[in-house]
Structures are given as C-alpha cells and as structure tokens.
C-alpha cells in the first residue's frame, strides 16, 4: 500500500470514528428521544452528501486556498437550509431549537469531515465511495430515527 493510500485510509478511519463516537453517544444518552440522534444523523448525512458532491465537482481554481472557505460556506448554507426545513416542512408543534442544534451539529461535523478527508480539495475515489455510503446511510438512519 502506498503512503498516499495509507494516509487516505487513516483519514477515512478518523472521520468514521468521529461520527461513530458522537452517534453512539447520542443513541445511548438520548435513547428516550430517538428524534435527537435522528436529527444529528440526518444533518450529518445530508451535509456530507451536499458538500462532498460540491467538492467532487469544483473547478480547479476553487481548490487549494479557496477550498476551506468554500466548504465552510457550503456547510453554513446547509445549516440555513436545515433551519428552513425545520421551520416549514418538518414543523409539527413548533420550531424546536434542540432539533435545529442537533442537525446543525451534524452539519458542522460533516463540514469538518470533508476538510479532513479531502485536505487539498481533491477527493480520491475510495474517499468518495466511503463518503457516498456514509451520507446515504446517515440520512436514511436519521429519518428512520426521527419519524419511527
């Protein structure tokens, strides 16, 4: 295995481990309220998908020095989009700030994960495949936990 592949594998493990630790903590500490881990996972999965897709399609000039700000701005857009959805489509009794904080925490972790997994702005194929799987799985698990 080349050094590059080993470094990529380490980054994937770290990102997966960080998500696993927080998700497990939510599931254990807040198991009486599955909608809380649900919002966290949905926020993580949806943001990882959106920001990851953006990273894959960025023009060359948006990589390098511009990549960090682009990821941060895209993450903030996802947070704003999440607030909009929580206040409209998913607003049942009222806008719950705890739901919003949980999904935004997931979004922030996803943005950080993209910076860790693709530090130069280029997304290697194995990272893209892992990110796609995690994005779909986290979003699906999030919706299941929030609405079951």
């Amino acid at each position: 295995m080349t050094d590059d592949r080993r470094a990529e594998a380490r980054r994937i493990l770290l990102v997966g481990g960080a998500l696993g630790v927080v998700a497990l903590a939510y599931l254990l500490a807040l198991r009486h309220r599955t909608d809380y881990p649900g919002h966290f996972l949905a926020g993580y999965g949806a943001t990882l998908g959106a920001v990851g897709l953006l990273a894959l399609t960025l023009p060359e000039r948006a990589r390098g020095a511009a990549f960090g700000p682009v990821v941060a701005a895209a993450t903030l857009l996802c947070v704003a989009g999440g607030a909009g959805l929580e206040g409209s489509v998913f607003r049942l009794a009222r806008f719950d700030p705890v739901d919003f904080f949980n999904q935004s925490l997931g979004a922030a972790l996803a943005g950080l994960s993209v910076l860790v997994a693709a530090p130069t702005g280029r997304v290697p194929p194995a990272t893209a495949a892992f990110g796609s799987l995690v994005s779909v799985a986290a979003t699906a698990a999030g919706f299941f936990l929030a609405f079951r």
């Binding site: 020095a65 511009a66 990549f67 960090g68 700000p69 922030a108 950080l112 910076l115 530090p119």
Partner: peptide
Amino acid sequence: RTTRAAAAGLAALA
C-alpha cells in the same frame, strides 16, 4: 491558513 480558519469556524459552530 484558509483551511485552518474554515476548520476552526466549523468547530466553533459545533
């Protein structure tokens, strides 16, 4: 610098 600033901002958001 920009990556660090972005990472620090996202950590602050979390």
